[in-house]
């Protein structure tokens, strides 16, 4: 079991909570693709993974700069709020490959606007876990690789722009999700599945995600599985929990894990997601 699985569960639970609060939740599914292991090369993989997208994806797809006057929509500015979370696991039942979930307004519904932006990338692959986060994170520096989309230089968060031209071509969060998936899968053969969540509904919806992101960043920094191993169904960390602002998140995760243990141990066993 991967220490990050609890955070994946947490993300799914958060989406459900937002759905229950009557937030607009849309789910897109990328077209099926052959197993990445059969793909002959990264560029071919990229071409297949981006087939049908309204914009180009890959090195040189964009000059990497969108001026203010050419901007259709700005996402995740410091004023609007931003959060970025990357999770990796080798647990098969987690991560629904190709699924892109959007909570909040779509690109086309937000002309000239500025939206809060939460981006969660959930990756699956054999042996993937917290030890890989740093390297995988580098794949997400997508500067100049998505036509009509610019990620600004804001370490730790995603502050980005969608160009008017791209919006006119039909650039949507489904597009962005597929583009990110393509770049990650073609950049790392170890990644077998990618699921993406975008949250544009409101700054408040980013708060629990950011709390989880902070914990995951700590885990990524530690880098050693031993330090962050799961003990039974407890998430343990090297911090003084009583003094930690993220204690509620950990408590939530513990309860999710306990609940899952209960389900797993019940007759009929493993629960489906």
């Amino acid at each position: 079991m991967n220490v990050l699985d609890a955070y994946l569960e947490r993300v799914y639970a958060l989406v459900e909570e937002m759905r229950e609060r009557a937030a607009l939740v849309r789910v897109y599914q990328a077209p099926g693709i052959p197993g990445t292991g059969d793909l002959p090369g990264a560029s071919d993989a990229l071409a297949r993974l981006t087939e049908g997208l309204p914009i180009r994806v890959g090195p040189g797809a964009s000059p990497g700069l969108i001026l203010r006057s050419d901007t259709f929509l700005e996402l995740g500015s410091p004023e609007a709020g931003s959060c970025s979370l990357l999770l990796a696991t080798d647990t098969t039942r987690l991560v629904h490959d190709g699924r892109v979930t959007l909570v909040g307004p779509e690109v086309g519904e937000s002309a000239g606007g500025s939206l809060p932006f939460g981006q969660v990338l959930m990756l699956r692959g054999a042996g993937l876990g917290e030890k890989d986060l740093d390297e995988l994170q580098r794949l997400l520096v997508v500067a100049g690789q998505i036509e009509g989309y610019m990620v600004r230089s804001a370490p730790g968060n995603v502050w980005s722009r969608v160009s008017q031209e791209a919006a006119a071509k039909g650039f949507s969060f489904a597009t962005l999700g597929r583009a990110l998936r393509a770049l990650v899968m073609s950049g790392s053969p170890a990644v077998e599945a990618v699921e993406v969540l975008f949250v544009t509904s409101g700054k408040a919806d980013l708060v629990p995600l950011e709390a989880a992101a902070q914990q995951v960043r700590k885990i990524a920094r530690e880098g050693t599985r031993e330090r962050w191993k799961v003990k039974g169904y407890d998430i343990d960390c090297a911090n003084d929990c009583s003094a930690c602002g993220d204690k509620p998140v950990c408590d939530d995760i513990r309860s999710v894990l306990k609940e899952r243990q209960h389900i797993d141990e019940s007759p009929g066993g493993t629960h489906a997601t």
Binding site: G64, R138, V141, A143, G144, V151, S153, P155
Partner: peptide, 9 residues
């Protein structure tokens, strides 16, 4: 450093 290299080509 690595991020800036990539972002700013």
């Amino acid at each position: 450093a690595l991020r800036i290299v990539k972002e700013f080509r």
